[in-house]
C-alpha cells in the first residue's frame, strides 16, 4: 500500500516536472529518461540473461538514423510511427547479429559486440548515399522540450511495465535460468538460442527508442555523436548503480547517475569522465548488486537486522585472490 502511494507520488511529480523547471533544465531530465530507457534495454540482455553486451550503442545509433531517415524520406513519416519502425528495424538487425554472436561466451561475446558497434559507426560514416557520411543528417526542427520529455517518460514507464511483466513470464524465467547456468537451463528444456536472441532483440528495441528521441531533440544525427562508447558505458553503469536484473534498478540507476553527473558537471567540468571511471570502479568493487540491493538490506536493518561493513566487503571477500 505504502508502495503504491509512493509510486503515485513519484509519477505525479514526474508529470509536473515540465511546469516546474526551465526548458533548459528539462533537457537534463529528458536525457536521464533516455539513459533509463537504454539501461532498461541493456538490463534484459546484460542483467537478466547475464550476457555482457558491450555494443548496445550500435542500436542507439541505428534507432537515431532510422527515425531520422524515415522522417526525412519522401513519405515524411511522423515521429512516433518512425520511432516504432526504428525499434523494429533495430530488433531485426539485433536478431541477425545475435544468432552468430550469441554463440560466443564471456570475453569473446563482449568484445565481439564492442566490435559490432565500432563497425556500425564506420558504416554510418562511410555510407554517404544513405547517411550523408560524417556530416550527418538534419531532422525537422521541433523545439518543444515538453514533448520529448513526455514521450521519453511514457516509454520509460512502459519499459517498467514491460520489464515487470517479462520478469514474471516464461521468457523472463528462461533468461534468468540461462544467466545462472546455461547447461542446466538447456536440460530443463529451454531453447537457449531463441531466448538469448529474444533478449538481445528487445534490448536493441529499447536502445533504438532512446536513440530516436535524442535524434529528434538534437535535430542532428552524426556518426560520432551517436555511436559513441560512452553511451554503452553509461547504460551499463546505470544498471550497476541501480541493480542489474531488477525492474527498478535501471531507472533508479539512471536518475542517480544523471544527478551525480550534473553535479560533477557543474562543479568539476573537466574531471567529469574521470568521476565516471571512479564511480564504475567503486560500484564494481563494493556494490556490484547495486542500490536496489542496498535498499533491500537497509529495509531489513529497519526491521531489526544487522548492518555492517559486510555489505560493502562481501563481494571482495568472495572474489579476491589470497
Amino acid at each position: 500500500m505504502a508502495r503504491a502511494v509512493l509510486l503515485a507520488v513519484v509519477l505525479a511529480a514526474l508529470l509536473l516536472v515540465p511546469s516546474l523547471v526551465s526548458p533548459y533544465t528539462l533537457l537534463t531530465y529528458t536525457s536521464a529518461l533516455c539513459l533509463a530507457l537504454m539501461a532498461q534495454g541493456w538490463n534484459l540482455i546484460g542483467g537478466y540473461t547475464g550476457y555482457a553486451a558491450f555494443g548496445n550503442v550500435a542500436f542507439v545509433g541505428i534507432g537515431a538514423y532510422t527515425t531520422g531517415l524515415l522522417m526525412l524520406s519522401r513519405w515524411h513519416v511522423p515521429f512516433v510511427p518512425a520511432l516504432f519502425a526504428a525499434a523494429l528495424v533495430s530488433a531485426l538487425l539485433a536478431t541477425v547479429i545475435g544468432i552468430p554472436v550469441l554463440r560466443l561466451k564471456g570475453h569473446y561475446f563482449a568484445i565481439a559486440t564492442l566490435g559490432v558497434a565500432e563497425a556500425f559507426r564506420e558504416i554510418a560514416s562511410a555510407w554517404d548515399d544513405l547517411t550523408n557520411g560524417a556530416t550527418g543528417i538534419d531532422l525537422p526542427v521541433r523545439s518543444d522540450s515538453r514533448f520529448f520529455y513526455y514521450v521519453a517518460l511514457a516509454l520509460v514507464v512502459g519499459g517498467i511495465v514491460i520489464t515487470a511483466r517479462l520478469e514474471r513470464s516464461k521468457l523472463g524465467y528462461g533468461w534468468v535460468a540461462i544467466r545462472e547456468d546455461q547447461d542446466a537451463a538447456r536440460m530443463l528444456g529451454i531453447d537457449t538460442t531463441v531466448f538469448k536472441v529474444a533478449a538481445f532483440a528487445l534490448s536493441a528495441a529499447f536502445a533504438a527508442c532512446a536513440g530516436g528521441i535524442i535524434a529528434y531533440q538534437d535535430i542532428h544525427v552524426a556518426p560520432d555523436d551517436f555511436f559513441k562508447i560512452e553511451y554503452t558505458l553509461q547504460m551499463i553503469i546505470a544498471c550497476i548503480i541501480g541493480g542489474t536484473g531488477t525492474v527498478w534498478g535501471p531507472p533508479v540507476g539512471a536518475a542517480v547517475y544523471q544527478l551525480l553527473s550534473t553535479y560533477v558537471w557543474s562543479h568539476f567540468l573537466e574531471l567529469h569522465p574521470t568521476v565516471l571511471g571512479v564511480l564504475i570502479i567503486l560500484f564494481v568493487v563494493f556494490l556490484p548488486r547495486g542500490l536496489m540491493d542496498l535498499f533491500r538490506r537497509m529495509a531489513a536493518v529497519a526491521r531489526g537486522g544487522r548492518f555492517g561493513s559486510d555489505v560493502f566487503l562481501a563481494n571482495v571477500r568472495a572474489s579476491r585472490l589470497e
Binding site: 558491450f54 551499463i236 553503469i237 571511471g277 570502479i281 564494481v284 568493487v285 556490484p288 571482495v316 572474489s319
Partner: peptide, 21 residues
C-alpha cells in the same frame, strides 16, 4: 586482485573504468 574471481562483467567493467579514468 580484489575481485579477480568475480563474474566476467566485473573485471571487464573494472578495466573499462580504469581506461576511462
Amino acid at each position: 586482485n580484489q575481485i579477480i574471481r568475480a563474474p566476467l562483467l566485473a573485471t571487464f567493467l573494472l578495466t573499462f573504468g580504469l581506461e576511462s579514468l
